[in-house]
Design a protein around this nucleic acid. Structure first.
Lengths: 191, 191, 191, 191
DNA sequence: TATGAATGAGCGTTCATTCAT
DNA sequence: AATGAATGAACGCTCATTCAT
């Protein structure tokens, strides 16, 4: 019997790729460096991923689902919508501040030419739980009844831009500033 | 006498670069293609721009100042702050929808490693007029007294993400949706 | 397992480079031609040598140590200094006539801007054995007590220029002429 | 009547080319820089010299005849051969130390692929006066009756190599060392 | 003659991918 | 499946030369 494809190797490749993207950006990402960082031979990379594009697309989906999953871990059916929303927003903001490159990697490349159409579709599907939460709140007239997609973009755009700003400044926002950002967003969508 | 340097060439190079970078992304941008698209020899490109990085940086500043300049054309000292803000926001949204290529280029690369620090500084300086308007409104307690920089990022991030969404969907937002976006933003920052 | 690095390739690259640089000079040396001449892909060249400068520097050291090594093979501790010197001189002259390409390469580039400082230092170190022989002869008052470095340059300069002359003329010196050259040099340094 | 080719411009081009070669070596010599240094437009260069090779060849002849001419200025019919030889040797050594790049330019490129055959022939002709002096000394049995060409190469090779050595060391030889070099040479050729 | 903007062939080098082991 | 040496297409950029003025 021959050995089968090794999930552990895939995890190592993902980790290596992300670490390199986070350190130097996508432009500096070299397949040879990924292999080295993952303690694999270059050839081995090509057993697990068809080519560089494939690696990026798979990593993208991996990260995006991880992100949504982490956010959804804050979810509790007992919470009011306001509490749910607040937890999700702070989770999103926190994750984005903690791993700005990771978030920028995810968001910068969503609509980029690097992603295949099927990756984009799968990515869209991942945010369904978040859209559902907004839709339910709209049924209860807790937030404006605008298109949930639009509301979501409004929220995420705001967060990402602010995070990018602090990242560029190489400073951290105070808790006060973060609260202010939340207020702007909440006041923008509340009924 | 000899052939005189032709400023029109710079415009052609900018147009060609923008078109190519938006079509295929920076990764796919080839200097040879820029030259061909601008109907120039490759060498000519290097008369006007030191290298690829320089081209991107100069194009960035060019587009960003053009954007602010177009927005500020809507400004009138007679207007109330609300009217001023509304005009500016709709100008920004309109420009972003009209020239999504330009706006996405600007925002994709604002904080990217491709931009030199001096380009980033010059870029920051360009938005000063917009920050001033927000500061004056704060003195009159018309909007929240959060950091103007943060408010601005919140506003721009929201617009860009929405525009990206429609651009990716290849659809146009209705006037109604645009108004809704404005409402979310205005309600987020109003006092 | 994979294909193992092939030391023979380095020899082929050295041979190809030397042949090309001597035929057309450094200015006309193209990495692509070296690869072709050595029956390698261009990329392979860059596995073994960092860049063109590195190739030239390594080749230089290789040839210079080969030259000194061949000369020193004539050395025998039993010989008188005069015999030792004569053997070394004739070896140097003979090698230079036999491989004018190699010798001219070495001398053309010794002090050239193409060579890194560390290459120059390593090159200096290689001639230590020759300097030692001169120093010992000075202790026995067999040759003038001028700086050994200067004496060595005087000797080598003379040989090289004569060799260059015959190489340019595409003729060979008679044994008589070679003896005359030796006499000039020996009479110049003898005590 | 139109203006004719301007000898002054040729002098400026020669001076500019030499200065740049002396400063940075031939590898760094750019036609555009020559034009700038000579305060001319690039196009003008090509009115006076067919191409870069032509410029180098003409400059070479210019410098070599200047060198011989400067050496021959030390010549006086009243001097004994020894005095004549000594003056010439010291002139050659002095010129070489004073303008090492100039001398290396002349000597390095004599047999180089940069020079056309007719340039080489003309160059050979220029050293005729020096060969004559040696031949006359041989008739008087003052020096060995070896081939004057060989004697001349022996002398020049020695000087050039020593000069190269000091140039590389970035030091100046003491008067004592220079005298020693002369002694080696004189003792090598004297009868 | 003089100018210098424009040209484009051609170079050094990189790096995703292949393939012999 | 795993390896990593080998490959070569393709890029950014230079600079000698041309040519419209």
């Amino acid at each position: 019997m021959t050995r089968v494809k090794d999930d552990n190797k895939i995890a190592r490749i993902f980790a290596a790729t992300l670490e390199l993207v986070l350190k130097n950006g996508y432009l500096e990402l070299r397949m040879a460096d990924v292999a080295k960082q993952a303690h694999l031979a270059i050839g081995t990379l090509y057993i697990y991923f068809k080519d560089k594009e494939d690696l990026i697309n798979q990593l993208f989906i991996h990260l995006k689902s991880e992100k949504v999953s982490l956010m959804m871990q804050t979810y509790s059916a007992h919470d009011s919508f306001y509490i749910t929303f607040k937890k999700l927003w702070f989770a999103y903001f926190g994750l984005s501040m903690q791993y700005p490159h990771k978030m920028l990697f995810i968001e910068q490349y969503v609509y980029s030419v690097l992603l295949r159409d099927d990756t984009k579709s799968r990515s869209e599907a991942l945010i369904e739980p978040l859209l559902s939460i907004l839709e339910n709140a709209q049924k209860e007239h807790l937030i404006k009844d605008y298109s949930p997609q639009i509301i979501l973009r409004h929220i995420m755009g705001s967060v990402l831009e602010v995070v990018k700003y602090f990242h560029a400044q190489k400073t951290q926002p105070s808790q006060n500033v973060i609260n202010q950002c939340f207020e702007m967003t909440w006041n923008g969508i509340r009924q």
